[in-house]
Simulated assay, not measured.
Amino acid sequence: MRVAFFVNSIEDETPNFSTTALALAALGRGHEICYVTPSDFVLRADDSLSVWGRTLPVSSYKKTETLHKDLVGDKAETRMFDISEIDVLFLRNDPSLDANDRPWAANIGVIFGRMAAQRGTLVVNDPDGLAQAQNKLYFQDFPASVRPTTLISKNIKEIRDFIDGQKKGAIVKPLQGSGGKNVFKVASPKDANLNQIFEAVSGEGYLIAQAYMPEATEGDVRFFMMNGRPLMRDGKYAAFRRVPAKGEIRSNVHVGGGPAPVEVTDTMLAIAETVRPKLIQDGMFLVGLDIVGDKVLEINVFTPGGLNNLSQMYDTNFAETVITALEEKVAIRQAYGQRLANRELATL
């Protein structure tokens, strides 16, 4: 099969990205891959959909570093594919990275992903489901039992009143965003920096204020789910702890958070079971839950990262399990055609 990975840009890809691990796994199983960016779609006058894809030379890649070097170097070439030549379109972009500088690009994956699905290509995660998840407000549709106490507002008085009701303080962050950008811990509504924090964060739109959970000092757990269930391979769960760097409240790896092995608990599995119906309903094939204590802080449905960390930590190739699942879906699509809707097939 041919798998197209939709990303924000080729230049911003790295060997450590989960997308690179997935591409390596696909090539390792004998499939063809290409990379697609927001400017690569073409809808012609006859209603045919094509895409320019950056392809790699036929090679037996063993390391993500080698694959990435060829991807960004002169060994890769760009060619056009009719969308019927793409078996799987894997949407792996982060819309928030394009929201300010390239707002036209932020929703392109969802828009053209929907068109690709209508023409018979398997698109994961389902574009209609992703359309509902353009910001963190999507998380509020999940059961209240797994969500921390939360306020969403642009009103400073509302935010002060909320923080005043949280004995252990609150976390304030933008509604639209990712990667731990502009995330602050506020101890009380009298915090001298609150006005500055409000000005910095509210400039990006609505704010989220969440009750602070002391367990977060130990970091959060990135817990992968596939087809609505915990991602497993060789009896191991695809989960790891992201430990904050000293002096940091954020556990994101790119701001110094360190990955560490974690033992999956009954509480984590109960959380996974609670969110499962909504993930299946929305066609969310591969997602990452960020868990602290008995709550989920965020659900990453666009670009859940950490597959490379997992591979090194547990000596287990979870990326290959993801590709195997896609193979099964493509086989089902070939057998049943369009009788199965994309959203149904995405989490089957």
Rank of each mutant, 00 (worst) to 15 (best):
Leu297Gln: 04
Ser59Gly: 02
Ile332Tyr: 11
Gln166Met: 14
Asn252Gln: 08
Met225Asp: 03
Arg343Pro: 08
Val275Arg: 01
Arg147Thr: 00
Gly293Phe: 15
Gly177Arg: 02
Gly293Ile: 01
Thr121Ser: 15
Pro57Gln: 00
Ile332Lys: 15
Arg229Thr: 00
Pro95Ala: 13
Pro38Asn: 02
Leu27Gly: 04
Arg222Asp: 13
Arg250Thr: 12
Asp220Gln: 02
Gly109Val: 14
Asp82Gln: 11
Pro143Tyr: 15
Ala192Gly: 02
Val146Tyr: 07
Leu175Asp: 00
Gln312Trp: 01
Val172Phe: 12
Leu122Phe: 10
Ile249Gly: 07
Glu263Pro: 03
Lys75His: 15
Thr217Leu: 01
Leu67Ser: 07
Phe142Glu: 03
Ile156Lys: 15
Pro214Leu: 03
Gly179His: 07
Leu43Ala: 09
Ala209Gly: 03
Asp40His: 13
Thr321Leu: 11
Leu348Asn: 07
Ala144Asn: 03
Asn342Thr: 15
Gly165Ile: 00
Ala260Leu: 01
Ala23Gln: 11
Val287Arg: 02
Lys236Asp: 03
Thr37His: 05
Met268His: 09
Ile197Thr: 08
Met1Asp: 06
Asp82Tyr: 07
Gly73Asp: 14
Phe112Thr: 00
Asn16Asp: 13
Asp294Arg: 12
Val7His: 08
Ile271Leu: 14
Asp40Phe: 04
Ile271Pro: 03
Gln210Cys: 08
Pro244Cys: 09
Val275Ala: 06
Gly179Phe: 12
Gln338Leu: 13
Asp294Val: 01
Tyr336Trp: 10
Thr37Trp: 09
Gln176Cys: 03
Phe5Gly: 04
Asp266Val: 11
Pro244Ser: 11
Glu218Ser: 14
Glu158Ala: 14
Val42Arg: 08
Asp101Trp: 00
Pro214Asp: 04
Ile83Leu: 08
Asn195Thr: 06
Leu279Arg: 05
Ile197Leu: 14
Phe318Pro: 11
Tyr61Ser: 05
Leu345His: 08
Arg250Asn: 10
Ile291His: 04
Thr267Gln: 06
Gln312Asn: 05
Phe162His: 05
Asp46Ser: 09
His254Ala: 13
Ile280Arg: 15
Phe318Trp: 02
Thr324Pro: 01
Thr19Phe: 01
Arg44Ala: 13
Gln166Ser: 10
Phe41Arg: 01
Glu65Gly: 02
Pro148Ile: 07
Asp12Arg: 11
Asn195Tyr: 08
Ala192Cys: 02
Arg343Gln: 12
Arg339Ile: 05
Tyr206Glu: 06
Pro148Tyr: 07
Gln176Phe: 08
Phe223Met: 09
Lys154Asn: 10
Gly109Ile: 15
Phe112Pro: 07
Gly283Glu: 06
